[in-house]
Structure formats: C-alpha cells, structure tokens
Simulated assay, not measured.
Amino acid sequence: MENSAAFQLMRFQILTAAHSEAVGQKLSAAYIYAWDRGIFPTAHEGADWHKPFIDYFDVGQDMVDDLIKVLDENKFTFYELEDYYDNSEWDRAQLIGACRYLFLSEYFDFDWNRLLTPMEHPTEASSITRPFSLDDIYLN
C-alpha cells in the first residue's frame, strides 16, 4: 500500500477512534486535533502512530519544532509571528493550527494572551485558545 494511502487510513482511524466512547477518552484533544489538521504531533512522543508518516503531515516536524523554539525565545504578537515567518513555508492557517495544537498540548508555559493581544491578531486566531470539542472534527 502506498504510504499516503496508509497515512489517510491511519488518520481516519485516529479520528474515528476519537468519536468512540471506549477509545476517545484515552486520546488527548491535542493529538486528535493534530491528526485532523495535518500537524505533526511533536509533543506526543509517547504515541507511535504518527512516526511512520512524518513526511505526510502538512505542517511537518521541523516546522513545529522551529515554531516551539521561536515562541519560547520571543514574546511575539500573532502579527509579529506572522511577519517573522513571512516568505517561508508557513501560511496563516498553518500558524494558527500549529499554535492551537501547542496550546491544547500545554507543551510549555507560554503567554497566549500576548500572542493574542487585541488588535494584534486576525479574528480567526482567536480560535487558538478556544476549548476543544469533538464537534469540530468532521470525517468528510
């Protein structure tokens, strides 16, 4: 089986399992979100399911690792973060998604209020700190 097909099957299984009562409660919100949005779940080293598919995530491991480093070393607003990554492989939706993944992961102590300073982020970035809901995960 081609690896991209195997990736899509694994993605479907993770997202389907998230909706089941027996398994869903054992998967973290951040891990589910990462699979749904195609973000490499670098903060979830204990899970092995994503490791064979490192090249198939839209936001790869190197991108997420670099974002963690940048956020850890800087006190950016979202627009400043976006400017920092101007002319790179990042786009706005990917930055928002990766930041949301890191927020849901509680990966590190970070001032999310600073990133989301009023008038210093696009409206859609407000979703970064919104509570997670399985209702936001669609299987279509």
Rank of each mutant, 00 (worst) to 15 (best):
11 R>W: 02
13 Q>Y: 15
14 I>A: 03
15 L>V: 01
18 A>M: 13
19 H>I: 00
19 H>N: 12
19 H>V: 00
20 S>Q: 13
24 G>E: 01
25 Q>L: 12
26 K>F: 13
26 K>T: 10
27 L>K: 02
27 L>S: 02
29 A>K: 15
31 Y>R: 05
32 I>D: 09
32 I>S: 04
33 Y>K: 09
33 Y>D: 13
34 A>N: 06
35 W>C: 07
35 W>D: 10
35 W>G: 09
35 W>I: 13
38 G>C: 06
38 G>K: 00
40 F>G: 00
45 E>T: 08
45 E>P: 00
47 A>C: 12
50 H>E: 11
51 K>N: 07
53 F>E: 05
54 I>T: 11
58 D>P: 01
61 Q>D: 15
61 Q>Y: 05
62 D>Q: 06
64 V>S: 00
64 V>H: 03
65 D>G: 08
67 L>D: 01
69 K>M: 05
70 V>K: 08
70 V>P: 03
71 L>C: 07
71 L>T: 07
73 E>G: 03
77 T>A: 02
79 Y>G: 02
79 Y>D: 13
79 Y>S: 11
80 E>W: 03
80 E>H: 02
81 L>N: 08
81 L>M: 09
82 E>I: 01
82 E>L: 10
82 E>T: 03
85 Y>H: 01
85 Y>I: 11
85 Y>G: 04
91 D>F: 08
91 D>T: 07
91 D>W: 11
92 R>C: 00
94 Q>D: 15
94 Q>F: 14
97 G>Y: 08
97 G>W: 08
99 C>F: 01
99 C>K: 05
99 C>H: 06
100 R>E: 11
100 R>C: 09
102 L>A: 10
103 F>P: 05
105 S>E: 15
105 S>Q: 01
107 Y>G: 06
109 D>M: 07
110 F>L: 13
110 F>K: 06
110 F>E: 09
119 M>P: 00
